[in-house]
Design a protein around this nucleic acid. Structure first.
Lengths: 350, 350
DNA sequence: CTCCGAGTTTGGATCGTTCCAAATGCGGCA
DNA sequence: TGCCGCATTTGGAACGATCCAAACTCGGAG
């Protein structure tokens, strides 16, 4: 039966040491499970730690040891389920390794990204996992975080020219191969006039996905009309609004490879508004395999990226880097897999 | 043109002080924008700070000032878009207030919750926002985090008996009113035999939602058959599997108020498998308004909870508490709003 | 009876910042 | 010249942990 007297002041090592008549150093050794300390002393100290309700001050320890116990995770969009799952994966591994996750959201703004990085870096994380905001550049990022802290870039490349002393690891999806698979699948279904729809060409992931599409089209000897490549913000709403552009000029496409699932779902909406039934009159594919993809009408053919696993992987890559700061820079490309659902129908026989 | 010499050792106040011939104290004053320091000196120091690429060590400052600059966010399920948006909202406000978010995911396990809380507390957050794992108790939570750090509970109550010295703020959704609205809406549509489907009665939110349903039914003078209340895990899969239970005994319900959207989507699946068309032969409502709700077939009538706004609100409530630790405990109930979509059809005229 | 060494314990300095009381410089006034 | 007050600057002691070299205890060997 322990009586808990609500205390204002925080309990420190010295309090515990005084409480059981040993020195601070001894208590410190007990805390860290050192084999040096005598069994009997250890028991006494541990009892006293419990009794006083001591809580370890990791900040103080980190200061003295010049270590860090946190890893920063900076995301361009946490409201996107893809990144939310990614974050969950990161946090799991980071936690297992005894670190704590410092979270920062940039809402796709490179200005906020700088502010967030600046604020996080002051807390001295051991490393940073960054999924850059659209249009953020290497110079910006380096200016905000310095070159001291190991960086793992996820999902996107940084724009701008790279100072030659800059180096970081990268984990990206195999965007190009993914859209190539999707395009080939549509071609195999019998489509010849295939569009590439949505996204902003400023993003590196856009350029890669578009390259996969172009590659597949060219390999099949199919030509690409200019108006089949329509850019829009990677959101449902903007995608729906831009649908008309696909059909502005003849010949109209019979299928589209979309930049991602959000865009594909928006395109479905836009098609319906024009009286076209997605999955019957027009085929389309997405990218990401968000939860809604399987639930939409028709269910969406897309590319799964296993965001939770990618999160774990990102954290593991960063931990590897922490263990060996001098190792050569790694660029990891994670595979993606085509999931065929009803949205990628054969062309309608008109 | 600045030449960046890659330095291993971290730059400290003393380095800068030495670099421009003033004392550490003066540099510290400059950093904090004190009006005491001479204009000319300030300029010189700021130049030197830039030149050396100084980065502030907030941990050291916090140690000295006995302050904290972080807020811990502990979530039972970050892969749920509802919580992901909530987290984004929290992080935005926390960031604006000059704090940093410490993230912890518990994956709905109260054991992990204890571990996560224990780890986070060592970093000395100014406060904690906790959405408890299922079945986590007040004693557990208090044991892991002590009574020193202000706690804001989100979404769920803690189980177990409360020690009388325990007190914390609460932000919850108006569960009871929400399901009452949904039930009344179904009654207005003409339904008389309405079920309450899904969720675990161990959760406080379940009991509240069920109470709202019961209340509405009783007010309307409608009776509730025992087999119309079917529990299941709040996941799509389990909901689909439990669908049969609703129809095991006569009279079968013609509509169901579901515990949440995941359950409702699962029920739709289950209904389809029985040859019932949701939104035509059977009406149903959800809770949460996750993104899929608007996209499902038929679109799901549900209750919106504005998770992003709830996140902001949670953070603001906690900041308020930090400003006035002695203020009376608050229990905030956030309103929810009924969104009527196609799933809540009138009863089929058989 | 002294000395040795293994097993434990400990005081004091240190990490990078902030606080505080005291020191410094300097123009003005008696 | 001496003293006051204002504006600025500063050395040294914190904050709560860890590191390190030195010290203590004690049984056994010489």
């Amino acid at each position: 039966m322990q009586s808990i007297t609500p205390v204002r002041r925080k309990i420190t090592l010295s309090d515990v040491a005084a409480g059981c008549g040993v020195s601070r150093a001894t208590v410190s050794l007990v805390l860290r499970g050192s084999p040096l300390v005598n069994k009997h002393t250890r028991a006494r100290v541990e009892e006293e730690l419990r009794r006083q309700g001591y809580v370890y001050n990791r900040a103080a320890a980190n200061l003295r040891r010049r270590t860090s116990s946190s890893i920063a995770l900076v995301l361009n969009d946490l409201t996107n389920p893809f990144f939310a799952e990614f974050a969950a994966g990161v946090d799991a591994v980071v936690g297992e390794a005894g670190f704590v996750t410092l979270l920062g959201c940039t809402s796709e703004s490179s200005t906020r990204e700088q502010a967030v990085l600046g604020s996080l870096i002051e807390h001295g994380p051991a490393g940073i996992i960054l999924s850059p905001a659209e249009g953020s550049s290497a110079q910006q990022v380096l200016a905000a975080m310095g070159a001291q802290t190991p960086l793992l870039l996820f999902n996107r490349e940084l724009g701008g020219s790279l100072p030659e002393y800059a180096h970081w690891d990268l984990l990206a999806l195999d965007n190009q191969h993914g859209t190539r698979l999707a395009t080939e699948h549509l071609i195999a279904q019998g489509h010849r006039r295939i569009a590439f729809f949505g996204g902003h060409s400023t993003a590196s992931s856009y350029r890669q996905r578009q390259a996969g599409y172009t590659e597949a089209m060219q390999s099949a000897g199919l030509r690409i009309e200019p108006h089949w490549q329509v850019e829009c913000a990677p959101t449902r709403l903007d995608a729906a609004n831009q649908t008309a552009a696909l059909f502005a000029t003849a010949p109209a496409p019979t299928a589209a490879v979309c930049y991602n699932d959000a865009v594909a779902l928006g395109l479905m909406l836009g098609l319906s508004q024009r009286g076209l039934r997605p999955g019957r009159d027009f085929a389309l594919t997405g990218f990401d395999d968000i939860a809604e993809a399987a639930m939409s009408t028709p269910p969406l053919t897309t590319l799964t990226t296993a965001p939770l696993a990618r999160g774990r992987q990102a954290a593991e890559l960063l931990l590897l880097r922490l263990r060996d700061p001098a190792a050569a820079t790694r660029r990891t490309i994670a595979p993606v897999q085509l999931v065929v659902r009803a949205s990628s129908c054969p062309p309608a026989t008109v």
